[in-house]
Nucleic acid binder design. Structure first.
Lengths: 153, 153
DNA sequence: CGATATCCGACCAAAATAGTCAACCGCTCG
DNA sequence: CGAGCGGTTGACTATTTTGGTCGGATATCG
């Protein structure tokens, strides 16, 4: 599981798409680009990957655009991130891979840590659907209080 | 909370430091560099930040090196990552910031999502101590993170 | 003093990211 | 039917981040 701004852009765009879908009418990238202030050409890239990943369907011609591939409640955020962030660069002991940390002396003691962290992230992003974000229903994590960042020591 | 390979390098180095600490003897960066196959100069950068963050203490001169600032059981992985990854670029609606998503039309519906994800990551990395990684005690987190404190090497 | 090791800043090259451009193709509506 | 809308593609560029180097300064032990 890799986290980049690209993934965030993709989610922003998908939320916009889901929020502005009426019946089966496609939404054009130009509309999303304007509303979300993301460049149209960049969106084209992202939606190319989203389409290949089955997250959205495209409708060509006048009045065309993109439609959700599945219902907003069935599309999980993790799906979107995975579709645009794909292959993993496999440098050393990377977040999403099992390979990498070759068997040198200390045999990458941190491997399990990253593996588990990656799992945690995937778990969380799989627990939230597109519909949840549109409805601003994202907090629901059981029993976690405030405090996010902001310690300097 | 930002996740980069830099943070991973720092954790790898810290694990090595913790694992090779005997009594109060400092460990030299040259040793860590050789064992972990990380360039010495790069390690110097990282340990400069770790020292400023209070994670390690330095001992100069021959026979010098670095010593843990706190006991391995008291140093959480999140501390290490925060020390080296610090400032956050604040582009748009970033992972660790509350600022960014300016009040345009849809007011960044994804903001809460990233905020909460960041919190989840921080929560997990705070639940694991340096001693845990050295002892390869990192798995077994079913669902959400486990007990954050109460375990010492 | 001199070897050892941290400290510090400037500098650099490669990679990933964010964004652009231009040409193309299918579809629908006038 | 054909013009134009809007998706499709891929190559190309600029910026940022990353990982790493170099050279020197400073501290300290013997």
């Amino acid at each position: 599981m890799k986290l980049s701004t690209r993934g965030r852009y993709a989610v922003m765009a998908m939320v916009d798409l889901a929020a502005h879908t009426e019946d089966g009418k496609p939404v054009s990238l130009a509309d999303i680009a304007e509303r979300q202030e993301i460049s149209l050409s960049y969106l084209e890239q992202l939606f190319g990957k989203l389409r290949r990943g089955g997250i959205v369907k495209s409708v060509r011609g006048p009045g065309g655009g993109y439609v959700l591939g599945r219902a907003a409640g069935e599309t999980r955020i993790a799906d979107i991130v995975l579709a645009v962030d794909e292959p993993i660069t496999a440098t050393r002991c990377q977040l999403g891979t099992s390979v990498g940390c070759r068997g040198n002396r200390s045999r990458c003691a941190t491997h399990d840590l990253w593996e588990e962290l990656s799992h945690q992230i995937h778990l969380y992003l799989s627990s939230v659907s597109l519909a949840d974000v549109v409805a601003r229903r994202v907090l629901g994590a059981p029993g976690v209080a405030r405090d996010a960042v902001g310690r300097v020591a």
